[in-house]
Design a protein around this nucleic acid. Structure first.
Length: 219
DNA sequence: CACCAGGCAAGTA
DNA sequence: TACTTGCATGGT
């Protein structure tokens, strides 16, 4: 299985090239993006982030004190703005108490502890926590998302109703535990998903992987 | 025009 | 424990 997973990775890399993720500058911006992109297309998130930048509000200290109402208005294009505004507030509160806004200190914490504490924040679930760990804190954590489940179940490599943890260990148990590799692999999966493997659509013929067609397409 | 997007938490049975 | 539902804008 190790070979198969690496072969898929290489195929995707050849096809798409490096993705240069995360498309944001700085750990905090990545964390904000991770929350704003929940069930939301990235272009909408970019608009929200640009609004925050224009208001010079894209720092933990600013987001800590900004009025909820104003925050809602700024992030509006990313959808779910009432909930996401609260979530961003929860994130800043977490950063305040866990490291006093010094991300370096956060990086030094034990991975397992850190993940648990992230999951304790209301608004941060498994995927968001892992995205933060991988793309903001550069920890070797594999991120599982809807595309990962869809693509690898279409490939027949994981069960259709495998849970998050199960899918995650499928990857981490069968790949070298390298941050760089996990970073690129997840980004490539998303690119493949967006381009050839969207929900409810037929798979494009140019898809670089052989994905099952009958059952999987509508998942 | 209908449906989906780089989810999550709260509610229900 | 295992489903379901609300959240909401913008692209295809």
């Amino acid at each position: 299985m190790r070979k198969a997973l690496l072969a898929i990775y290489r195929k995707l890399f050849r096809h798409f090239g490096p993705r240069h993720w995360w498309p944001g500058e700085g750990a905090f911006e990545v964390m904000v993006g991770a929350i704003l992109t929940q069930n939301t297309a990235w272009p909408n998130v970019e608009k929200a982030i640009n609004n925050l930048k224009k208001e010079k509000a894209l720092s933990p200290k600013k987001l800590e004190t900004i009025k909820l109402k104003k925050l809602r208005r700024l992030i509006k294009p990313s959808g779910y703005y009432n909930e996401k505004a609260k979530k961003l507030k929860n994130l800043t509160a977490f950063l305040r108490r866990s490291c006093g806004f010094e991300i370096k200190k956060l990086k030094r914490k034990k991975l397992k502890e850190l993940r648990r504490s992230l999951l304790g924040v209301n608004g941060i679930g498994p995927e968001t926590a892992d995205s933060i760990l991988l793309y903001a804190l550069e920890k070797p954590v594999f991120v599982v998302d809807a595309y990962t489940r869809r693509i690898f179940s279409r490939l027949g490599l994981i069960g259709e109703n495998a849970g998050y943890a199960e899918i995650q260990s499928f990857f981490t148990d069968n790949l070298p535990k390298k941050t760089k590799l996990f970073n690129e692999y997840h980004a490539l999966i998303v690119e493949l998903g967006k381009t050839y493997c969207r929900k409810g659509r037929a798979i494009c013929g140019k898809c670089p992987l052989k994905l099952g067609k009958k059952r999987g397409n509508m998942v």
